[in-house]
Simulated assay, not measured.
Amino acid sequence: MAADNSGDDELAEYRRDPPPPLANPKNREEIGRMNEELRRWTPRNRDYFRSPDFLKLHQLPSISPLWGYDESYYRETIARELMFITQAAGRRLTPDEVTVYLHHASRWTVAESYDRPAAIATTLFMANRGWNEFTFPFYQPSFQRFDPHVFPSTSLPLLRGRIAAASWQGGRCGLYSGLGILAYHLFAPTYRSLLNNNNLQVLEMEPRLKSLKRDTREAFDRLAREG
């Protein structure tokens, strides 16, 4: 009895002119070859990368450009997601697969855009929480020795009164901002890695991507072995 190749027959059109396979991220030479092949392959498939209907995907908050995530960032990120999964599958995705996969991928792209405002909000919260007590990061001054209305010290009172208090508060905000920036750079990569893992889990959870899951398994298994 002949094997059922109907699924492959339906995808034959999308297997023509396959993209270069994913490179081992630790192999610079392999990455270089892949990028060179992509520079030739991408222009031939320009319409494919223009095919997603961005208006049907999850959208960035309207004020996200204020913290550096604009429409250009959004579209480039979605395009990278589509490129990645296309290379992993070794073929172009069908229109339905593009819609379903990018629906999930755009959700995590939007979630990623909240990393900076979350860091800013945390910084402001910490600075405001100790406003009246003039609390510094990891340090609470004793008012028996500390006078917030003298700056920088009682032995060297360059500023007095409200100006001195404002200087102390400005110093507090600066230190908390520095701490927030440090925390952002430490934890943002982990946050993004978790979101990327969620994108890949879509293949496991989404029944409409059964064929895509099958086609990407070999690439992901190979990268896991090489990693």
Score class of each variant (00 low, 15 high):
L200E: 13
A183L: 12
I63V: 09
M205P: 00
R39N: 10
P21D: 02
R107F: 11
A3L: 11
N5E: 05
P65C: 06
D96R: 03
E10T: 00
A3V: 12
S142F: 00
Y73C: 08
E10R: 08
Y14D: 00
R160W: 01
T216V: 13
L212T: 15
A111R: 15
W41F: 04
T216E: 00
T190W: 15
L22M: 06
R107Q: 07
V202E: 04
F54E: 06
T122Y: 09
E36Y: 14
P18T: 11
T135K: 11
E112V: 03
L82A: 08
A164S: 05
P18Y: 14
N132K: 14
A121M: 12
P152R: 06
R192D: 09
M83G: 01
L194I: 15
H104F: 14
A111G: 12
D215H: 03
P157M: 01
Q59K: 03
K213G: 02
R33L: 04
E29Q: 13
E204M: 09
A166F: 08
F220V: 14
N198I: 03
W108N: 10
R162A: 05
P137V: 04
L175M: 08
E37C: 05
F49K: 07
S211W: 06
R40M: 07
A88I: 11
S155T: 06
N5I: 15
A23C: 13
Q140A: 01
L200R: 09
R225W: 13
A183E: 08
W168L: 07
A23K: 14
I163H: 09
F187N: 04
N132V: 06
R80P: 00
D221S: 11
S64G: 01
D215Y: 03
T86K: 15
G180D: 12
S6W: 06
Y74W: 08
S142P: 00
Y73K: 10
A2P: 10
